[in-house]
Measured scan of single mutants.
Amino acid sequence: GLMCLEHEDEKVNMYCVTDDQLICALCKLVGRHRDHQVAALSE
């Protein structure tokens, strides 16, 4: 899978609806997407 741009060791596994961007779990937990609307990726 694709790796996160901000956290190079994390794979992107969710999608930020607010930013129209693929993000990883760390982005959602501690990153700038924590208050955004996110959706899980169905692979």
Rank of each mutant, 00 (worst) to 15 (best):
G31I: 00
V17N: 15
L29F: 04
D35E: 12
I23H: 04
C16K: 04
M3A: 09
G31E: 06
V38R: 05
A25I: 04
D19N: 08
M14T: 15
Y15E: 10
R32S: 12
Q37W: 01
V17C: 14
C4Q: 04
M14E: 14
D20V: 04
G1D: 15
E6Q: 09
M14F: 02
R32V: 06
L5I: 03
E43L: 05
E6N: 05
E8A: 14
Q21D: 08
H36I: 02
E10Y: 05
D20K: 10
L2C: 14
R32Q: 10
H7E: 03
G31F: 02
I23F: 03
M14A: 11
M3I: 12
V12Y: 10
E6P: 00
I23T: 08
A40R: 10
K28C: 07
S42Y: 03
L5W: 02
H36W: 00
G1L: 01
G1W: 01
H7Y: 01
D20H: 08
Y15H: 13
T18D: 07
A39W: 03
C4T: 08
E6T: 10
G1K: 12
C16G: 04
M3H: 13
H33W: 00
E43V: 02
A40M: 07
M14Q: 14
N13Q: 10
R32H: 07
V30G: 13
Y15G: 10
V38F: 13
H36D: 00
C4V: 00
G31Y: 06
C24S: 00
A40D: 11
L29D: 14
V12K: 15
N13S: 03
Q21C: 06
H7M: 01
V30L: 09
R32Y: 03
G31C: 07
D35R: 04
D35W: 03
L26R: 14
L29C: 11
L29I: 06
V30E: 13
D9C: 13
N13V: 03
R32L: 09
V30D: 13
G1C: 03
A40Y: 02
H7G: 02
Q37H: 07
C24I: 00
K11I: 15
M14W: 09
C27I: 02
H33A: 01
T18G: 08
V30N: 13
M3T: 06
L22A: 15
A25S: 12
E10C: 09
V38Q: 07
C4R: 01
E10D: 06
Q37K: 11
L22K: 15
G1Y: 06
